[in-house]
Structures are given as structure tokens and as C-alpha cells.
Simulated assay, not measured.
Amino acid sequence: MAIQHQPNPQQNNPLHGFTLQQILELLVQYYGGFEALAKQIPLKCFSNNPSIKSSLTFLRKTPWARTQVEELFIKLKLYQTR
């Protein structure tokens, strides 16, 4: 009897394999800094003394903001950078 492998349910998920930190760093790099990113997603963590660390803290506690960041990442197809 052959073992059948289930297809990976994550294979079509563009976020699969990316941490929130990687997503944020790619967005900051793409826009050339937090100032331009804040124009796309107007969050205080991007416009008021921004850093990767402080932004990650906010995004991990705020699901709606994290969703906005993930949606922009997908819209820009930055997952194709691999």
C-alpha cells in the first residue's frame, strides 16, 4: 500500500515562509524607508520615531494593522523576491 502525501496547504499562500519581520523589512526596503511606507499605510509606528523593533511590537498586537501590512506585501508581489 503506497503512502499518499497530502498536498501542502501552504503552497499557494504567498506569506508562507516569511516572518513578519522579513515582510516588514522588505516593505521598508521597497519604499526606501519608513516615511514612504507610512504614506501607503498610515500608522504611527511607521511615522513617529519608527524602527523595525517598535513596528513589530505594534503589528503583533494589532491584527488589523498586520493584515494591512501583509496585504500590501502580497499586492506588491514581494513574495516573489525569493
Rank of each mutant, 00 (worst) to 15 (best):
M1I: 11
I3M: 03
Q4N: 06
P7M: 08
N8C: 12
N8R: 09
N12K: 08
N12E: 03
N13V: 02
L15P: 04
L15F: 03
H16G: 02
G17R: 07
T19F: 01
T19I: 04
Q21H: 03
Q21V: 05
Q21D: 14
Q21N: 08
Q22K: 11
Q22L: 12
I23G: 05
L24W: 00
L26T: 06
L26I: 07
Y30E: 14
Y31L: 03
Y31T: 08
G32D: 08
G33T: 12
G33H: 10
F34S: 06
A38Q: 12
Q40Y: 02
I41E: 00
L43W: 10
K44C: 11
C45V: 12
C45F: 01
S47D: 06
P50D: 03
P50V: 03
P50W: 02
S51R: 10
K53Q: 14
K53D: 13
K53C: 09
T57R: 11
F58S: 08
L59G: 07
L59N: 06
L59S: 08
R60N: 15
P63C: 02
A65W: 04
Q68L: 14
Q68I: 08
E71F: 03
L72I: 01
F73T: 09
I74Y: 01
I74M: 11
K75M: 09
L76G: 06
K77S: 15
L78K: 01
Y79T: 00
Q80E: 15
